[in-house]
Structures are given as structure tokens and as C-alpha cells.
Amino acid sequence: MTDTDPQVADDGPVRFMPQLISLDYTVRTNPVAAAFGEALADGRITGHRCPSCSLVFVPPKGFCPICTIETTSADEVVIEDRGMVTAWTVLTPIQYHGQQERKDYALASILLVGADGTVGQQRLIDIPLDEIRPGLMVEAVWAAPEDRVADDRGYGLGTAIDGWKATGEPDAPASEYEGHTL
């Protein structure tokens, strides 16, 4: 559980003793996230439509946070694997224990056709960083079926989609992406 690095004390008085603590967590994938993961493995993106306010949430939460009512598989809808970039940033990854990213990369929020909310922190593929813009139409590049693992907590799209590439369609108008900064 504890790993103390002996090399740190080599030069001069001890200032810090790094003590890496590891704690193990077993996160059981909740039933809604599990069903979402199974659909992803099949190459389908699903969401839940709130029976009260009709908003479609992707990934599904199992409830509508606005109406505070539960949603079930009966409320499931299939979403297209195509949509528009609504917001993005280019990151210079900060190095920390466990970080595997080394180079600058772009992450975008994407509003999928058929969904009311965006999916966040999505990779863009083969799109020069200076050509990313809101309204850019993109489509999913799916991972190989055996590599499609859903996030255990039900966040995002897990490893099912490697990233998103431009479709070449005309950009969506501002009226369609404004209001979807998140």
C-alpha cells in the first residue's frame, strides 16, 4: 500500500518523502451504464428521453436531473453517431502519476443528432488543430468491437469510439450550437 522512493533523500537534508498511497476501489457498473455499454459494444449510441420534459440525455443517467424522475429502458432512444462540434480546447497535458498523454491534443463537446445534450471531452481525429471550429460536422470512428469498453461509472463513451473525423458536410449554423457550450 505504501511505496517510499529512497532516491529522494540522496542529496542534502530531507525535504520531502514521497509516499504513494494506493487504494483499490471496485466500482460496479450501474445497470443503466451497463445497458449503455452493451449497446456501444454493438455500435449503437443510446440515450434516455425524459417522459416529462422530453429532453434526451446521452449517456443515459437513469433519471432526468431537471424533473427528478427516474427513466428506464422504456425511455431508451437510439442516437446517430454523427453530430456537430459545439466547443473545444487544445490541451498541453500536465504530467502526473498515471498520466499517459504526452503531446498536445484537442478535445471537443459534440452535439449528436437526436440528442439534446452534448457528449464532452471527445477526441478529434485527422483535423488540424487550427481548423477546429464550432458547427464542424463530425462522425464517429469506432474502435474494433473487442476494444469497446464502456466507462465503469457511466461517463462519456469509454473506449468504444477512437475519435471523430470531419464528414465534409457544410458547417451547422450558429443557432444550432449556441446554447451548447457545455
Binding site: A87, L91, G98, Q99, E101, L107, T181, L182
Partner: peptide, 26 residues
Amino acid sequence: DTTWGLSGGRSGGVGAGGYFAPHLRA
């Protein structure tokens, strides 16, 4: 290690700056 903490110990954490940057651009 705040960035480690923010990422929940997983790779690919965007940090606070990465999260807020799109809002600033908007």
C-alpha cells in the same frame, strides 16, 4: 497532486484549465 486528484487517478485528466477553456472561448 491536484491534477492527479482532479482526474480521479485516471489518465487523460483535462485539469481545471482544460475544462473551462471552451467556456472562455465561447
